[in-house]
Design a binder for these strands. Structure first.
Lengths: 253, 253
DNA sequence: CAGTGGCGTTGCAGTGAGTGCAACACTCAT
DNA sequence: ATGAGTGTTGCACTCACTGCAACGCCACTG
C-alpha cells in the first residue's frame, strides 16, 4: 500500500538472512543506492537495524526488544506460564505453548525439560506447521474454507517417514484432531521425538492457543508419553478456565 | 530521514504498550486517520502488526520471528552457548550473555539455574544498564567521550539502596571495572540477588560481549558467589579465544 | 425504528516528500 | 600513483503520500 514503507520493511527479512552491505540491499530491493541508504538510515534511527564495524547492516536491538514486549503483551502467555511450570514439575519434560497467527504457528513460551537430553526449539520460532501437535490443534479449529485454503498452499516437507505427506492427509488428520480434542506428533518432525498436545479455549469455545509436552524416545516411549494425556488436558483446561474468566486466578498456593 | 517510514516505525513502540485502535494510532502519530490506516495496512501486509478480532492492532508474529533470526545470527551467541551450558553444569546458577548496542545492553542468551529459586529475566530484554554487572563491563570499554555522554543521559533509578545513584558514581564504578577486568552487582538491582561477570573480547581486545553468573542470597552468599570468579573468567576467556579465532572450536569432548 | 454518534474506509486533487542521477569522497589493492 | 570498489551528498523532477470530505457500517437509544 505504501511504497516507501513497503520497501523499508522488505529490508528486514533480507537482513535476517545475514548482514548485507548497502549495494546488496539496493540490488535486492531493486532501487538506487541512495534510496536504499535513506531507508536504512531511517531504520537505523529507530534501532531496527544496526551498523556493524565493517559497515554492513544487520538487524538491530530495538527489534528484539519490541518482539519481547509483543510477547509479554499476549495475555494468554502470562496466564498460562505458571501452569506450564507446574506441569513441567510434575512430568519433567519440555512444555511448549503456541499460538496461530496469519498462516503461522509459533511458540510463545517454553519450559525446559529437566532431563539431560533436550530438544531444540526456541520461543518465537515458527513451528513445523504440518506435523507439530500444537499446529494441528490450532489449524483444526479454523473455519473450513480457511483451513482448506491454508492446507493447499502449505509445503509438506518430509522431515521423517512419518511426516504428513500432502494436503488431503493433513486435512484428514485435522478432522481427527478436532473430533478427539487432542493431538500427537509421533516422530513426524524428528524421528526420535514424540509430543502430545491439548487445546486452550477462550470463552466462546474457540481455540486460542495450544500446549504440548515433548520428550525423546530415549527418555520415555510414545506409549508412556500418552499416559500423560489426561494431565496435559487437565492443565490446558485449567488455563482455558482462567483465560475465559470462569476460574479466578489462584493465589500462589 | 524518511517521513513515511519514520511514522510507520513509530507505530511499533506505540503498539508495544498495548493494543490500539486506528483513531488512537492516528492521534498519537499526529496524522489523519486515513494516513494511519495506510501505514497500518502496509505494516500488516508485512506481518509486523496483527489485527485482532476487536479490530484493534497489536504487534505481529513476523516481528517475533525476525527478532528470533536476528539473535540466531549473532555469531558470538552460537560460539558462547556451549560454554555457558558447561558453566551452568559446573556451578548450577543462572548464566547470562549480553551485548551492548546503541545505548542499550540486552541479554541474548540465558541458561536457567538448576536451583528451584530462579531470577526473572528474559532473552531480548534490555537490562538495568546502571547496575547490571554485564552492563558495567560493556560500557566501561566504550571510548571515553561516548561513555561520558551516555552516563550523562541515563536515568539512575534506585531499585535498591545499593543502586548506582548518579552519573559520577557510575563513571567511577566503570573506571574500577575497566581496571580490574571483571564486575559485580551486589544487590543493586534486586535486594537479594548478586551477580559476578566477566568480559568477552574480540581479536582487537575490544569487549564484544559480557557474561555473568547470578544467584539469590538464599542459595549462596555474595562471598561464596565471588569464589566462582576465576571459573567465570576462564569461561569468558575461552569464549574470547574461540571468537577471535585464536582457539579452534573444540570437538564435543 | 428513525435518529445519532462513533468507528473504519474510500476517492480525489494538490503538493511536498521520495526518487534516481551524477558527482564526490574515501579506502583499499595493485 | 592508479584504479576499482565502496558509501555519501546535492539537486531537479515527479509520483507517491497526504489530508479532506463523503460514505458505509454498526451499536446504542429515546
Amino acid at each position: 500500500m505504501s511504497q516507501t514503507v513497503d520497501r523499508a520493511l522488505s529490508i528486514l527479512p533480507l537482513l535476517a538472512e545475514g548482514p548485507a552491505d548497502l549495494g546488496k540491499v539496493a540490488e535486492r530491493l531493486g532501487v538506487h543506492k541512495s534510496t536504499a541508504l535513506r531507508l536504512l538510515r531511517t531504520l537505523h534511527e529507530h534501532g531496527m537495524v544496526y551498523r556493524q564495524s565493517d559497515q554492513r547492516y544487520r538487524l538491530g536491538a530495538r527489534l528484539i526488544a519490541l518482539a519481547q514486549e509483543a510477547m509479554e503483551n499476549l495475555d494468554i502467555r502470562g496466564i498460562a506460564h505458571p501452569h506450564l511450570v507446574r506441569l513441567n514439575e510434575q512430568c519433567g519434560h519440555t512444555v511448549h505453548l503456541a499460538v496461530y497467527e496469519e498462516d503461522e504457528v509459533l511458540y510463545i513460551d517454553k519450559v525446559e525439560s529437566r532431563y539431560p537430553v533436550r530438544m531444540y526449539s526456541r520461543i518465537g520460532k515458527p513451528v513445523a506447521i504440518t506435523v507439530a501437535a500444537v499446529a494441528k490443534l490450532l489449524l483444526a479449529d479454523l473455519p473450513e474454507h480457511e483451513r482448506r485454503a491454508l492446507a493447499e498452499q502449505l509445503d509438506y516437507p518430509l522431515y521423517t517417514s512419518r511426516s504428513t505427506p500432502n494436503a488431503p492427509a493433513f486435512l484428514r488428520e485435522l478432522d481427527k484432531v478436532r473430533e478427539q480434542g487432542w493431538a500427537t506428533d509421533l516422530g513426524g518432525h524428528e524421528e526420535s521425538i514424540n509430543c502430545v498436545a491439548a487445546p486452550i479455549r477462550g470463552a466462546d469455545g474457540r481455540v486460542v492457543a495450544a500446549m504440548s509436552v515433548s520428550a525423546p524416545n530415549v527418555v520415555v516411549t510414545a506409549d508412556e508419553l500418552l499416559t500423560l494425556l489426561p494431565l496435559v488436558r487437565r492443565t490446558a483446561d485449567a488455563i482455558s478456565g482462567e483465560y475465559s474468566g470462569r476460574t479466578p486466578a489462584k493465589d500462589t498456593p
